[in-house]
Design a protein around this nucleic acid. Structure first.
Lengths: 158, 158
DNA sequence: GATGAAACAATTTAGTT
DNA sequence: AACTAAATTGTTTCATC
């Protein structure tokens, strides 16, 4: 069927919870929290990486500090048939595109984009999006203020 | 006016690029890449944290592995006047809510929510959203497939 | 701000249970 | 899978430039 099912025990979930909150926590500190040996933590973490339970360790950076002040969501209709998602794959290659979701309802993608300002969003749409085939229409929504933006998942207790 | 402007030099941007790609990189490795002393890297990193250029170090976890299979975007109209954003603040407190954006156009919020399945989304809406005042209407869009989902920013060269 | 050196701490490997 | 112990490597402080 699909890939082997991933089974996580209480210790794995504890590690995930700690690392989701602070990816630079030391294995020694994880070991102290969970009352186990650091070498055992290292083994667990390696396996979680291997199994792609942990996808990446990343620093969240303030977009304003690196001049990425504009955030927009763009809905796009595509003329390609169900099953193919080449349009989405092309969109995913663009560095300013942070997210591409295929959504229910119409033949639609929802795309999250970050640029310096509205002028650079226009340029991106004119120079890059316009070369992607099968895009029938776009509707752009500009974010005025972001109140919360995290990717923290609710990790179950058990 | 606003908070003091943040000025980042080439070294800071190099550190940010490396840590955005891998938050568990050692300061020693950053030092080797950027050809400087590890103690200087430590000082820079501390300052970037202090200045809130680095907001958090986090492990990105596979949602499927922790049983968070459903992703939805909800647009909400609110009856509260411009300037106040209590509705948004209440939404931000809910752990399943990953993002809350105030968007242009109508009196609207765009909310990103992750739950186990559609039944648990229904429960969340019935039990939690319904207690938040001033929500006039909601329109829920279910994600069928996520092609890309990252928060990686484009870090300028200089 | 950056460096180098010293003291301290964490990581990682290997052997054992 | 987990533990301990030992060897290696990284972190952190501090005096100096």
């Amino acid at each position: 069927m699909n890939g082997t099912e991933i089974i996580l025990d209480k210790t794995d979930l504890g590690i995930l919870r700690l690392m989701q909150g602070n990816a630079r926590i030391t294995n020694a500190d994880i070991a102290r929290e969970l009352e186990m040996a650091p070498s055992a933590v290292l083994e667990r973490v390696k396996k979680l990486e291997q199994k792609q339970v942990i996808l990446q360790y990343t620093a969240r950076i303030n977009p304003v500090a690196v001049n990425q002040k504009l955030l927009a969501f763009i809905s796009m209709k595509s003329s390609e048939g169900m099953g193919s998602n080449n349009t989405a794959k092309e969109l995913a290659k663009i560095p300013e595109v942070q997210e591409v979701h295929h959504i229910a309802g119409e033949d639609c993608y929802l795309v999250k984009v970050r640029t310096a300002d509205s002028a650079s969003l226009m340029n991106l749409m004119r120079n890059t999006f316009s070369h992607i085939p099968n895009i029938l229409s776009t509707r752009t929504t500009i974010v005025l203020e972001t109140v919360k933006e995290e990717q923290q998942l609710v990790i179950p207790e058990k």
